[in-house]
Amino acid sequence: MLEIKGLSVSVAGKEILKDFSLSVAAGEVHAIMGPNGSGKSTLSYVLAGREGYDITAGSVLYRGQDLFALEPEMRAREGLFLAFQYPVEIPGVGSATFLKTAVNAIRKHRGEKEYDAMEFLKVMREKRDALGISEEMMRRTLNVGFSGGEKKRNEILQMALLEPYLAVLDETDSGLDIDALKVAADGINALRSPERAMIVITHYQRLLEYVVPDYVHVLADGRVVRSGGKELALELEEKGYSGFTGNAEAAA
């Protein structure tokens, strides 16, 4: 599914990711944990194709293709989805219009028939009911005036509608209270499947109680300093990041 090899990334001359490697197979859920500034969000943005990042070394192979050769919209159409840590507010663009445009762009790319307005409303209704998203929310303009929880649920709704092969969830838990977190986790778990992989980026172990990962990687100062199973998250919760960061520096 995804093969990241020796990836180094700089922002404005400062190296953020250093010789980062990760291999993700279909059906797997990988958690990437790390303190603030460790490079977690940079990783998510580089995968999705945001501008402003210099790839100085390494390669990313996504479903057999060179990911960096694809424009952001082509990555999305090829099934890569980023759930934004900070979903962008777009005044004047209706939520439903946006979703329909996105879903149809991807369906068209996959050679599937584009939804007409009625078909789309039906599909959207099923998905949003499961996430407790009201019809009224879909009538508002995109993310404008949404609470933190509503924005995150809207990201998961988009993921459910776009049916990606690889979902990168960037701190989807941040800013959520425990009830909202459970709703979000249920939405994520409902999308787990043998064909789909997920990378769950988080600062806290909390989300991983509900979305149980197959692998956990600890990122510190742009490198993976430990990899293990789900129990690594618990160890991290106990010890904190400081021990790991120290190890990383000792190893360097």
Binding site: P72, I90, T97, A102, A105, H109, T141
Partner: peptide, 22 residues
């Protein structure tokens, strides 16, 4: 805003058009 739209599969010209229309 442009990146958010493109990250959802919407091509650059359509994304521009959506934002201008908005």
């Amino acid at each position: 805003q442009m990146f958010y739209l493109r990250a959802r599969g919407i091509d650059e010209a359509s994304a521009r058009s959506l934002l201008i229309a908005a």
